[in-house]
């Protein structure tokens, strides 16, 4: 238990822990005294690495992300700045949120930029009033059409990609992994050493709560656009 908790009642939590642990030990009396967790075998017979080639992986990611109703386009490295500017124009973005360490050449000249930094930070109200956000990503997963953000360079803190209604995300071909387990393996260090937050994004926000009709967009960005560069 931590010491600086508010309120008297929380002191009861200390004995709560003892009670619960005691109940667990009592409830698992059938487990041999000397059994270690590792003694319970885990069969990891599932695929942990794919055998698809680079092209196939990139193609699969593009296809599957598009199935979630994300707009996906493949461009070459040199076409990228033009494609970004075009996408923003089409969408009518005037005020664009920029995370720290976004490559400068990605940022079109004719938009008003709202740059987030450690100081000063953009307020939630500023983010809410913006027209969109432009980011990179940590990696992407072909198998599921997922973009992964880890609050690292060119992505920024989580609120940046949450409050604006439009998210334009650049994925470099070499950032795309084949299978889900490969992605978790690659993220392990960031989580373990830097404890950064991880967000998986598979298409724009959606709900099927009304008569099971899929509606794109409730609380998160209602439009997600992906540019695959390579």
């Amino acid at each position: 238990m931590v010491e600086d908790e508010p309120g008297d009642e929380l002191m009861a939590g200390a004995s709560g822990k003892e009670t619960i642990l005691w109940r667990i030990r009592h409830g698992t009396r059938d487990v041999p005294e000397n059994e270690r967790p590792e003694d319970v075998p885990i069969e990891r017979g599932y695929r942990t690495a794919g055998d698809a080639g680079r092209d196939e992986i990139v193609e699969q990611f593009a296809e599957r992300a598009a199935e979630y109703k994300a707009a996906v386009r493949r461009v070459s490295e040199s076409e990228l700045p033009g494609a970004i500017s075009e996408a923003l124009k089409r969408r009518g973005v005037e005020k664009l949120v920029i995370p720290p360490n976004l490559p400068e050449e990605w940022i079109p000249e004719d938009v008003e930029t709202l740059r987030d930094a450690a100081r000063p930070r953009l307020t939630n109200e500023e983010l809410d009033a913006s027209d969109g956000v432009l980011t990179g990503c940590a990696l992407a997963i072909a198998q599921t059409g997922t973009i992964v953000l880890d609050a690292g360079p060119a992505q920024g803190r989580r609120a940046l990609t949450l409050l604006p209604d439009y998210h334009l995300c650049v994925v470099r071909e070499e950032q795309i992994t084949g299978l889900v387990p490969e992605a978790f393996a690659r993220l392990e260090e960031t989580v373990r050493d830097e404890r950064r937050a991880i967000t998986f994004i598979s298409g724009p926000s959606a709900t099927s709560d009304i008569e099971l009709n899929r509606v794109e967009g409730v609380h998160g960005p209602r439009t997600l656009e992906v540019l695959i560069a390579g």
């Binding site: 599921t144 059409g145 989580v191 937050a197 991880i198 998986f200 994004i201 926000s205 959606a206």
Partner: peptide, 8 residues
């Protein structure tokens, strides 16, 4: 294949 958002 994957739900729209997962936060860790």
């Amino acid at each position: 294949r994957m739900n729209p958002y997962t936060s860790f």
